[in-house]
Amino acid sequence: MLREEADEALMIHYQKGDVRAFEILLERHRKPIYNFIFRFVGSRDVAEDLLQETFLRVIKGAANYQRKAKFTTWLYTIARNLCVDQSRRKKHRKAASLDQPMTKSEDSGTLMDVIPGKEMPSDRKAVSRQLHQTIHRALAALPGEQREVFLMREFLNMPFKQIAEIVGIPENTVKSRMRYALEKLRLELEEYKDMAKALP
């Protein structure tokens, strides 16, 4: 059964023209990759574009794939590089003012209106939504080098050694970046501990 085969074996099958093998690979990795990208860039549209670009690069590079390379390392290296490039492009864009209207209409709200405040919401659904927004904002506030390490370790459950391979830095540096990322997030989300405890 193709479904029980490792990623590397599936990739070899795809090299031989078995599209079903690629379908299984896509099924396995599209959701984690998409979430990694989405939490990295903070935008669903951009995340979908980068997800598509990541797998297109896998398709085009399949002919040159060698089994000795771990598939997930290759896959996340592609995704991480695309995210880094996207972050660099984003930095050169003019930052939108928090006070300016989101549309040309004078009655439309500002960006400040949609950014969650620190007030505790009343209903449970609103609490959950606010907590998610806070976490996303805290993640977005992390430096890119810390964010990528944190996302890979926390959400992809990737060993530090593999993260070091993907990022191309020593494992200790990865752990150090992880430690700084955790400390910043902890301080950022300290106020929401009680809110998180309230959620089931």
Partner: peptide
């Protein structure tokens, strides 16, 4: 708290595009 974040799902359109591309560009 991080585990509270829901896993997002990519759109099926992207998946379909990727499968089509995989069929066309299969080595």
């Amino acid at each position: 708290m991080m585990r509270e974040l829901p896993a997002e799902e990519p759109s099926q359109a992207v998946t379909a595009k990727l499968l089509h591309a995989a069929a066309i560009y299969a080595p």
